[in-house]
Design a protein around this nucleic acid. Structure first.
Lengths: 203, 203
DNA sequence: GTCTATAGCCAGATAGAC
DNA sequence: GTCTATCTGGCTATAGAC
């Protein structure tokens, strides 16, 4: 009973702060709004997290530790390149539906504060590209895929999967779709993106 | 003499506001900082633009009217799909070097304020995908390219070109490159991205 | 640990002299 | 049109009662 629904105040605050910070950013967020969302008193935020900045950093770390394993699917998994691409493309959509503001939040705050990434590097599970580099080199040598730089391929995989969600208002505006049609378009991407990438690199 | 270097105060303000807003966003920007950058008094900002919000909207419109023609290269140009992809990929890098914060600025502010896109639609030159749809359908029928949805292809082209700049701190962190190596990576993309897309769709 | 009240500061906006 | 001075409100943060 004590672990199912009995969240501590600290956890309730963090959860509320995640929602507000991810939607409004550090500068746009208001401590009062976070307190309201958490259903507690504003001074509790300072009691538990001392300052807005420190609460924000807790949220950012938490968000990054959710995104990192996603990227590691591509980088550290043991399956073939082709399977990795298929799995990541399918899984990422599921992930993003649960955390819609997360990638644009991380990317925006990293742009405003690029040195944040250095703190993240110290965390365990920070994405590392070395294994992926070896794998790509190997598959190029085998002849299963065309010659391509592993870094460029990784960027391409990220770009094709992440960008449509970050830029969705712009895309919806230009393509001229309502929400329902756009949702279908995204649904189609679960397979289309993987096919696109595989076509591009397969021999 | 009067048109070469003699900018009006209004233009000087807009130019300074562009730099500050694009780097810091609406919430992060300070009117005092804009005034300092422009080298004029803070009250002048209000004299010419009435409020922070209105100054911001002038900046946003201006930024969007710079990005739109870039996207129209892909959508409205008369060349073949293959040439469009090559040209856009090459030109976009040049564009982004001149306006490094512009796309992430537009995308971030559209996320915070999705209805902005509706105001943009009323401007002339707002990107329209109709011509591109016909062209893709035609080239698919001709057999020059594989069957693909024009909307998906357009998203892919944007994603591969725009994302690396928006997410550059994240990418640099994961790939572990210094600024110089990253610059070279981007330089390589001028041709690599076009090749990647063309491989993916070419029959 | 949780609340109320308030300190202290800073930003956007305006009044009014020149 | 451009400046100085100032108002006003809102925000982070803390003091202190319970």
């Amino acid at each position: 009973m004590s672990k199912t629904k009995n969240h501590t105040t600290e956890e309730i605050i963090l959860e509320a702060a995640k929602k507000i910070f991810q939607k409004k950013g550090l500068d746009g967020a208001r401590m009062q709004e976070i307190a309201d969302k958490a259903g507690i008193n504003k001074s509790m935020l300072h009691y538990y997290y001392r300052s807005k900045q420190m609460l924000f950093e807790a949220v950012f770390n938490n968000a990054f530790s959710l995104l990192a394993p996603q990227l590691n699917t591509v980088l550290n998994d043991d399956s073939s390149i082709e399977d990795k691409i298929k799995n990541f493309t399918k899984d990422y959509i599921t992930f993003i539906i649960k955390h819609p503001y997360l990638p644009s939040f991380i990317i925006h705050e990293l742009n405003r504060n690029p040195e944040f990434i250095n703190k993240m590097k110290e965390q365990i599970g920070f994405p590392n590209i070395d294994k992926f580099k070896n794998q790509v080199a190997l598959e190029v040598e085998n002849g299963t895929i065309k010659p391509i730089d592993a870094q460029q391929l990784f960027i391409n995989i990220m770009a094709l999967n992440i960008f449509p969600f970050i830029a969705s208002p712009l895309i919806q505006g230009i393509i001229g779709l309502d929400k329902k049609s756009f949702k279908q378009l995204i649904e189609d991407r679960k397979t289309q993106v993987a096919d696109f990438i595989i076509n591009a690199i397969k021999n």
